[in-house]
Design a protein around this nucleic acid. Structure first.
Length: 600
DNA sequence: ACGCTCGCATCAGGTGGGAAACGG
DNA sequence: CCGTTTCCCACCTGATGCGAGCGT
């Protein structure tokens, strides 16, 4: 099984979902023509230019603001802005021009470097990415099309980003790890969208790893050619579909083989080694047939998450990155030096809490049947003892939020709490008041989570945690046919997006965070709240499941504990049931996992 | 008999390491 | 010569198929 084929086929296994899906050439990852509409050669000199981190926006007193990436200094305007409106955080300074009609536009990017940028401010370009608010982006697109996108596995991305993420590129293509995974909200339920990722040069420099750090080394090769776009295999599809579950790009492959640029493999994005790239998510409203509406120039929305920036390499340069990859990528498990011991170490030897101590253990892992699989964990949660690599010998910030809440991950935690506590909403949309459910959160969420977990198999049957329900199903021993059966036997009908509450809650959170920012102190009720649902039975069953699967009973590390609520979990948690509390559960669950910034 | 669960084996494919090859 | 790229390797995961066992 390769690439999008698996995703799409798995998705199609759910009848209703399959019926909903609109087949298009671009949707088939194995189709040589797939994505041809976007499979153009993009000019290499289209740079995503990050805002200068060295010049914090005076209106953002600290990273925990809604404008963590607010342009405070010289920025490169994405030269592609003409086609793809600039990302949220650039939108305030860059005209979010609409896009030109379909076929004409995508390969017509301005070949200009809008602004110069010194090397010094490029690396690390996103000091502010540690903000807890960086995981959510609102579109800079035109009016009436303000989708919101949440970077699901942001904690993991941040881990890599601290060391300057590197991505291996090979001739045959190498998957990204971490991969891009988003949750989308505020789309039109019935409208159709193409969702795709574009990878653009992040700066005009050639990079070299020297003296233990990345330094610029001349100009980037701007003559790069090849496919820079990967269309999600489920494109086109309805807004309801895209909002229903996490949108994962785990099948996306990176290559340095220019020969693939126009070949059959649309799953490949052609990059150049030792260049820095910035993935961007694009959501394009299309007709039911997957054709862009040429009469509209405001139907493309673009989102950029600076923490997903990376340098393409043919061999890892930074051993910290290598170790992070080995630690978190299940396929690299064989390279973990003390693989056996780390999974059999006594509980007392661990610094990280047991799974039952983590929020997700209560919400997503009610018992052994819902034990998390390696993939499920690794992409989003470090399941390794944190003292293995992040000890004092390394100049890496200890990110164990339970131990050091003043971290970016912990900041997400605060965001969660903010949502939990609600706030003054300035939105006129349906208001989602979470407060009344605060006390019932841990207890009310479980039933929904349990039900939905077995049901939410329509989309996520592919490989990586874009298929958490697959892996989780496997955890309790069921077979794929059974999973499908379970899924199909359960009610499935178009429903309002589980994330429909985002717009409103975002406003709430914004207000809340602003208050918190002006105030002080970290709120740590997240963990406490979750621990209130602690169950010995769950712990034991989970432990047994972990042993059977050679999983670390340790489970999610505290490092990510405030953020170890996975998108699918969140989506699934509201897939079933229709009570008010489900939305509350979602919103609350989302918060620790995503962080947030907004368009001014 | 049928449906389901479970365990096992097989296979395809992903992973980083390391040595060799390549190229400026 | 040195940095970069390519290739092969061992190890791993996940999907799948098959048969045995169990309950209805």
């Amino acid at each position: 099984m390769l690439g999008g084929d698996g995703e799409s086929s798995a998705f199609s296994s759910t009848k209703d979902a399959a019926a909903e899906r609109r087949k298009s050439p671009a949707a088939d990852g194995d189709d040589p023509s797939a994505g041809s509409r976007y499979n153009h050669v993009m000019s290499a000199d289209r740079y995503y230019i990050p805002p200068a981190a060295s010049k914090p926006n005076p209106e953002t007193p600290n990273p925990c603001s809604f404008l963590p990436y607010a342009p405070g200094g010289a920025v490169y305007a994405p030269s592609s802005a003409g086609r793809y409106p600039s990302s949220l955080h650039l939108g305030s300074v860059l005209p979010a021009a609409g896009f030109s009609p379909p076929a004409a536009g995508r390969n017509q990017f301005s070949p200009t470097y809008p602004l110069g940028q010194s090397a010094g401010c490029i690396y690390p370009p996103y000091a502010g990415s540690g903000s807890a608010l960086g995981g959510v982006a609102l579109s800079a697109a035109g009016p009436g099309a303000r989708a919101q996108v949440y970077l699901c596995n942001r904690p993991l991305w941040l881990k890599f980003h601290r060391h300057q993420t590197e991505m291996i590129i090979t001739k045959q293509g190498r998957r990204m790890f971490p991969f891009l995974s988003f949750n989308i909200a505020a789309l039109n339920l019935t409208a159709h969208y193409n969702v795709f990722v574009e990878v653009v040069l992040a700066d005009p420099n050639h990079w070299r790893f020297q003296g233990g750090k990345w330094v610029t080394c001349g100009k980037a090769d701007s003559s790069s050619q090849g496919n820079k776009v990967y269309i999600h295999p489920e494109s086109p599809n309805t807004g309801a579909h895209w909002m229903r579950q996490e949108i994962s790009f785990s099948k996306l492959k990176l290559t340095n083989n220019k020969g693939t640029s126009h070949s059959a493999n649309s799953q490949m994005i052609v990059l150049q080694s030792l260049h820095k790239y910035q993935p961007r998510l694009h959501i394009v409203e299309v007709t039911e047939d997957g054709v862009e509406d040429i009469n509209s120039d405001v139907k493309t929305q673009s989102f950029t998450f600076p923490e997903t920036q990376f340098i393409a390499v043919t061999a890892y340069q930074n051993t910290d990155i290598t170790q992070l990859k080995i630690d978190h990528n299940p396929f690299a498990k064989g390279f973990r030096d003390n693989y056996d011991s780390m999974y059999t170490a006594p509980e007392n030897d661990r610094l990280t809490p047991s799974p039952t101590d983590s929020p997700r253990a209560h919400q997503i892992v009610p018992g052994a049947r819902y034990s998390m699989q390696p993939l499920f964990q690794d992409q989003f949660v470090n399941n390794l003892p944190q003292n293995r690599f992040y000890n004092s010998e390394r100049a890496v910030p200890q990110t164990n939020s339970l131990l050091s809440p003043q971290t970016e991950d912990a900041a997400s935690q605060r965001w969660f709490v903010s949502m939990q506590q609600g706030g003054n909403s300035t939105s006129t949309s349906t208001k989602l008041d979470l407060t009344p459910y605060e006390g019932e959160y841990s207890s009310s969420l479980l039933p929904y989570g349990i039900k939905s977990l077995s049901m939410q198999t329509s989309h996520a049957l592919s490989y990586y945690p874009d298929s958490p329900f697959t892996t989780m199903s496997a955890g309790w021993g069921s077979r794929a046919p059974y999973q499908r059966k379970v899924a199909s036997s359960l009610p499935w009908s178009p429903r309002p997006s589980p994330t429909a509450g985002f717009p409103d809650t975002l406003e709430k959170v914004k207000t809340q965070i602003e208050e918190e920012v002006s105030g002080s102190g970290m709120i740590s009720s997240w963990t406490e709240t979750q621990e209130s649902a602690h169950s010995l039975e769950k712990a034991e069953s989970y432990s047994a499941a972990c042993k059977r699967r050679r999983l670390s009973v340790n489970g999610p590390s505290a490092d990510d504990s405030p953020a170890d609520i996975k998108c699918e979990d969140l989506a699934s948690a509201v897939t079933n049931g229709s009570s008010y509390s489900k939305d509350a559960s979602l919103s609350k669950s989302m918060a620790p996992y995503y962080s947030f910034y907004t368009n001014p």
